[in-house]
Amino acid sequence: MRKTRLAAFLVLAFFAALLSGTEAAFAAYPEKPIEWVIWASPGGGSDIFVRNMARLMEPYVSQPFVPVNKSGGGGAVGMAYTASKPADGHTILAVTTNFVLTPALGRSPKGPADFDMIARVAVETNVVAVSTDAPYKTWEEFVAYAKQKGGVSWGTFGVGTSDHVASAKLSKLSGIKSRFVPFEGGADSLASLMGGHIDVLTNNPSELTEQIAAGQVRLLGSFSADRWKAFPDVPTFKELGFDVVVPTWRGVVAPKGTPKEALDYLSSAIEKVVAQEGFQKYLAENQLEAAYLNSTDFALFVAEQDLFYKNELKELGLVKKKK
């Protein structure tokens, strides 16, 4: 008797939940807190980025954001989780260049095709850094040193990352024989560079600012299209005569099929935040440059980046040609 009553209650509760779900589609968006998925663990670059944005976006969005960390597999875990959520605009995902790279390397079951783009927020760059104790001061000197030595050890962050793609292309174009040393994090790679264990390192400049200012690390060049605002003296590799522009960026996406109103609603909120002074300051401190693109333009951009990185990975032999 008691059991049937419990079962009846559960069934009722289930239908109640279902009903409230269908109602949601007609209510004004957003009608409940928005889950913001971060594919890094608390404290990582992406985590701080999202938590900052969520805080600044609150005045423009009628519901609070709930940051959720789903780290692992170069973003694969976060993508799989987000794509499995209902496409009602109440789950969004912060992405980086890995959004195209990880799927292109065949390491993620979900990729850009499973998402609708909301907005691009900012662009980043990778720079080539050497220790100030090293005998070479410019890229040309470095190339000469590398050729004379017969090869150099070059720190990157794993195989098939944007910094690896850029470094491999650059060293191929300049005819250097490089041995790429994959590191897990910024700290141990930097310590290895400053201790003279590796010859050169490609990294995001935000992890190097302090050492550059203290005169322990010198930048030889940047992979950005134009000179980076924070380091106007550092040439781009394009200027130096090598056609290696490898952009990296940050944006926000939602599961495929999210209503257009929801995408535009969030996109315009992001646009307002990006223009804010407080956010600009945060971007500058973290070596990011504001580069807002709306939903439609970001989708085109992602498609173009997807093609670009797939080609680069094929060139490097990281993706089998037949794919």
Binding site: G151, V159, R179, F180, L316, G317, L318, V319, K320
Partner: peptide, 8 residues
């Protein structure tokens, strides 16, 4: 077996 060879 990795898809690229790394020296040493």
């Amino acid at each position: 077996v990795p898809e690229i060879e790394i020296d040493g």
